[in-house]
Design a protein around this nucleic acid. Sequence first.
RNA 1: GUGGACGUGGCUCAACGGUUAGAGCACUGGACUGUGACUCCGGGGGUUGGGGGUUCGAAUCCCCUCGUCCACCCCA
Length: 416
Amino acid sequence: MSIASVRGFNDILPGETELWRHIEETAWSVFRTYGFSEIKLPIVEKTELFLRSIGETTDIVEKEMYTFTDRHGDSIALRPEGTAPAVRAYIERKLYTAPVTRLYYTGPMFRYERPQKGRYRQFYQLGAEVFGDESPRADAETISMLMRYFGKLGVEGAALQINSLGDRNCRPAYKEKLYNYLKERTGDLCENCLKRIDANPLRALDCKVPGCMEATRNAPSILESLCEPCEAHFNEVRRFLSLYGVTPVLNPRMVRGLDYYTRTTFEITADTGLGSQNAVAAGGRYDSLVSELGGPDTPCFGFAVGIERLALIMKGGAPRKPLTVFIALGDEAARKGIELVSAWREAGIRVVEDFSTGALKNRMKKADRLSADFVVILGENELRTGTVTIKDMKKAEQADVEWQRAAVVISGGNRG
RNA sequence: GUGGACGUGGCUCAACGGUUAGAGCACUGGACUGUGACUCCGGGGGUUGGGGGUUCGAAUCCCCUCGUCCACCCCA
């Protein structure tokens, strides 16, 4: 058998890339109006970066990272997510000399998981991070930016859930409370939850095993255990979200799989098209991460969007510029064609010339299969009169058009 | 990592263990050397995912392996 791609590593083919490009360009055009600048980050980082940011007991670090030793003996890893590298760059390149830094990035991430629809070992995220802004308005504005972006893409059925995980003042106390609560019910918990009860009891909250759901039904809620500043922050986030016209669903059981989150966390899920891998975007606040990684005290907020998943739930495709197929009949027409086609391309028009010489019928057929919007024919008759025949393939109408006017027609300028 | 379903021309799918594995769509040539989608006629295309086994005989049954999908897990 011929060599196949590695499991979970896909080619994004023509026909899909148009939509991908549209997704990324729309993100860029929306995010930049909020003051974001693009940053290009490496795909490989020192393994330690992820251990210290994502957390050593998370699933991502424990069983999903592509980690290996390079020729020098250093342990390096393919990045499983984008926030940690962004934070590393922020600190290393001293981007904190600006009062607020807003970064946008896109690219592949890697996790060794069992592939499924919407879940691949190499997958693409686009993300944005706001550095140095502690205001709840930053949370609300960034979330609303994301919702606006989804709206612009025509995404339907996307639901926003938010929660607050507290901070280093109130979360330890809550953890303790929850730990004690769970300890009294160890008989009802699944094996998995028993294992994580010590390392991260919060994870038991979103376990889907019936016994665990039952056991945690009346568990203490994080939202009732927030310290005053955290509670105030969360209330402000919600107040400003509503001013932006965004109405989230409160989900006090939503726990993120990365350790660095503090206070606000959120998740956007799709109701169709994704099966159980239905999280399209997620993010939150991480006020301690920059300092924990050796940078100055810097409150941050960010999110990431899964591009494959977004592409799967997008109803409309990418907007498409008209395509023209140019057919020259005879040598003289071909020579004139070079001039005409060059000029059209100069004007930004998409033109493909059919270089074959068979029956016009077959050449028309070929143009049709290329989904041409227009076919332009230049033959002896047209050469004599200084025109081209332009056929509108969708309307099945054609007309003789003077050379200078042809560009207007095939650029779609006068289509109804 | 666990459990399950499924892998047959480019695509969607047929074929009870029994001739040379078929059909539709697609492709290609012609009817029709200046007009696509419709029609008619012809043509090419398969190591039945891969490997091993059972059998006189395997697409079909068994084992292994690879892959896709679904659920769990987890997450974007």
